[in-house]
C-alpha cells in the first residue's frame, strides 16, 4: 500500500482552507517541487495578503509575509540580496497580483526578474468574503457585483498570461488548473518548470492556476470543480503563453 506522505517542504500545521478549496492542492504541488529539486534550504517564499496569507506557516522553507500586492517587489529584494543562492517564489491571489499589485507584477515580469510566481486565479476575493476580483467573469455575481459583473460599468476581466505574454521580459508563462487528476499532473509539471527555470537562471516564470472558492462562489466543492471547466476555462484557456527557451530551441 502506498502511504500518503507529506512533502518535507510542508510543515505539520493543518491548513485552514475551506473544504474543497484548491489552495491546499497547489501548496502541496509547490512543496513537492521544492523537495524534488532539493532546494528547500535556499528557498524563500513570499506569502500574499489573501486567503493564503498564512502560507508562511505551511512551508518549511524561510517565509516572508508581504503587503497586499507587493510580493514581487519583496521577492526582487530577496533575490537580489543573493542571486546565486536564493530561490524565491511568490504565491499570490488574483486581487493581490492583478489588482492592487499589478504594477509590481508587470514590472517584475518586464525585468525578467529571476523569480517564480504562483498565481491563484479563483475569480474572487476569497479572504474578504467574496467581492469582485479583476478576474471575475462577465456576469459573475459577487458581493460587490450583486447583479452580476456588468462590463459596461466596471470593465472586463484581466487575462494575466495573455497580457504578460506581450512583454519581451518574461521567460515562461503558463495557465493550468487543478480540477482533475490529469490537470493536477499538468499543473505539477508547470510548477516544476517554473522553479527549474529559476534554478537555471532563466528568469521570470509565472504559473496561473485556475482555482476554486466554493465558499464564496456559493457552490459545493464538486460543482465548483465543474464551474472551472464550464465557465473559467472557456474564458481563460489553459496552455503555455510564453516559453522563451523553448522558442529559442525551435529557432536553432
Amino acid at each position: 500500500m502506498v502511504v500518503f506522505e507529506k512533502p518535507h517542504a510542508l510543515t505539520d500545521a493543518p491548513f485552514h482552507y475551506c473544504p474543497g478549496c484548491t489552495h491546499g492542492i497547489v501548496h502541496r504541488l509547490v512543496a513537492e517541487v521544492i523537495d524534488e529539486l532539493g532546494i528547500e534550504g535556499r528557498t524563500i517564499g513570499i506569502a500574499p495578503v489573501g486567503c493564503s496569507v498564512m502560507a508562511y506557516n505551511y512551508f518549511n522553507c524561510d517565509m516572508i509575509e508581504a503587503a497586499h500586492g507587493r510580493a514581487p517587489a519583496v521577492a526582487t529584494g530577496v533575490k537580489r540580496a543573493d542571486p546565486e543562492n536564493h530561490i524565491v517564489f511568490t504565491y499570490q491571489g488574483d486581487g493581490d497580483l492583478a489588482s492592487i499589485g499589478m504594477a509590481e507584477t508587470v514590472h517584475s515580469a518586464a525585468r525578467n526578474e529571476n523569480i517564480t510566481v504562483i498565481f491563484i486565479n479563483n475569480a474572487i476575493y476569497g479572504m474578504t468574503g467574496g467581492q469582485m476580483a479583476p478576474t471575475s467573469l462577465p456576469g459573475q455575481i459577487t458581493q460587490t457585483s450583486p447583479y452580476g459583473r456588468d462590463v459596461n460599468h466596471c470593465g472586463y476581466p484581466v487575462k494575466v498570461c495573455e497580457m504578460l505574454s506581450e512583454l519581451d521580459g518574461p521567460e515562461y508563462l503558463e495557465r493550468v488548473t487543478v480540477n482533475s487528476v490529469k490537470n493536477i499532473k499538468n499543473a505539477k509539471k508547470a510548477i516544476l518548470k517554473a522553479f527549474k527555470n529559476q534554478v537555471e537562471g532563466k528568469g521570470f516564470s509565472l504559473v496561473e492556476v485556475l482555482s476554486t472558492c466554493p465558499t464564496n462562489w456559493g457552490m459545493t466543492p464538486a460543482d465548483a470543480l465543474k464551474w472551472v471547466d464550464e465557465k473559467m476555462i472557456p474564458y481563460y484557456p489553459l496552455g503555455v503563453y510564453k516559453d522563451r527557451s523553448a522558442a529559442k530551441e525551435v529557432e536553432a
Partner: peptide, 26 residues
Amino acid sequence: GCFLQAESEIAAINMVYGVASAGLRV
C-alpha cells in the same frame, strides 16, 4: 552592489523590505 530603479516608491520600499528580510544593509 545592486542599484535598481524601481517602478514606484511603493516597489522601492518593498524591495528594501526584501533585502532587509534577508539580513543585509539596504
